[in-house]
């Protein structure tokens, strides 16, 4: 009895998170913070720094959405999730959106009832091996011990790849990235496989990164993107178009440096005007104010700036744009028009 009493008291005290009704936007506004699901730590994508402030590429998406909706890029509660817990956390309303390098697949979209709001990183599963192993192709890995980070599509892709090539392997499933890296660098496994972006990110942290190579094979398509619950399309639209705003800003040359100047008054590019709210009523249609996209861009810059600052070639993660270049530069990053 005492238990229920104290629970009730705690609930009164506001420990309970807000209700997860259909209108996520209202909940977020009422709460004043955005609950955003991220990983428990992947360098470059989402990890808390020494001061406990979350940094990374996925984190930037959360901050942009928070800025668009709440006007403050720091009004985000980051909820660390594992591969197992992320979907329930989203389905049960514990988080409003999930930005945790999650692969857009048919079954997740259709069977698990989630709505992917776009792709912020085109990835693929790859293999990393020590250089002195002398392996140049994944097809030479017959009998190798492979470390896998579990909880993703990785296990399935791996099984398919080795089965279709008719070679055997010894899987070593590991729960967290840090332990997988420990085992791999200690030589407990010959190969480490996960998304190529994560491979690059983790390789950058090795004591001697040059001793390891990422093999050329890409065994899967992994379009990673933020997702929301099925059914709340208004909220889905906000997340989708915030991401698109970052992408369009890069395409149109709107950066965090020139944005305040550009948004002072309507310029002569109508799409920039519509994006920044100096023309048209796009923000109103979303249920936000006119400057939503401007705030989203100002937090961490446009897509290109976010990429460059968190995982780009100048950082120690050192990822090239590759598939993630703008469509105008031969990449796949493409936003529908703002009109």
């Amino acid at each position: 009895m005492k238990k229920s009493v104290i629970l009730g008291a705690l609930t009164v005290a506001g420990l309970a998170a807000g209700a997860a009704g259909a209108a996520t936007l209202d909940d977020v506004k009422a709460r004043g913070t955005l609950n955003c699901g991220v990983t428990t730590g992947v360098p470059g994508f989402a990890e808390p720094d020494a001061n406990g402030v979350w940094q990374g590429f996925d984190v930037a998406v959360c901050r942009a959405v928070a800025a668009a909706v709440l006007g403050d890029g720091n009004a985000v509660e980051f909820v660390p999730t594992t591969g197992k817990t992320r979907f329930t956390a989203l389905a049960s309303g514990e988080i409003d959106m999930l930005a945790r390098n999650t692969t857009w697949t048919f079954s997740r979209d259709v069977d698990l009832k989630f709505e992917f709001t776009g792709v912020n990183y085109y990835d693929g599963q790859g293999f990393m091996v020590p250089k002195d192993l002398g392996v140049t192709s994944a097809k030479e890995l017959d009998g190798a011990t492979v470390c896998i980070q579990t909880g993703t599509t990785t296990e399935l892709n791996l099984a398919d790849f080795f089965r279709s090539n008719g070679i055997s392997y010894e899987p070593v499933p590991i729960e967290t990235g840090s332990e997988a890296v420990q085992l791999f660098t200690a030589g407990s496994c010959d190969v480490y496989t996960t998304d190529r972006s994560a491979l690059a990110a983790q390789r950058a942290n090795f004591a001697n990164p040059d001793d390891y190579v990422v093999l050329p094979e890409v065994v899967s398509k992994e379009p990673l993107g933020p997702l929301v619950r099925h059914g709340d399309h208004e909220w889905g639209d906000i997340v989708r178009w915030t991401l698109n705003a970052l992408i369009t800003a890069e395409e149109l040359g709107v950066t965090s440096d020139n944005i305040s100047e550009m948004s002072m008054e309507a310029g002569n590019n109508p799409e920039i005007n519509r994006l920044l709210g100096t023309e048209g009523t796009l923000g109103e249609m979303l249920g936000l104010d006119a400057e939503w996209a401007k705030r989203a861009i100002m937090v961490g810059g446009n897509y290109g700036e976010v990429f460059a600052n968190n995982i780009g070639e100048s950082t120690n993660i050192g990822l090239a744009r590759g598939l993630n270049a703008q469509w105008t530069d031969g990449g796949l990053i493409y936003s529908p028009p703002f009109r």
Binding site: T40, G41, P43, P48, D49, A50, T82, G177, Q182, A207
Partner: peptide, 25 residues
């Protein structure tokens, strides 16, 4: 194990996978 950052969780998650401290245990 369920992604709460208690002492062990904070070690296995953010600290040991951070850029600065990967490889320490």
């Amino acid at each position: 194990v369920i992604s709460m950052f208690d002492l062990v969780g904070v070690l296995r998650g953010p600290i040991l996978s951070s850029t600065a401290w990967t490889g320490i245990y």
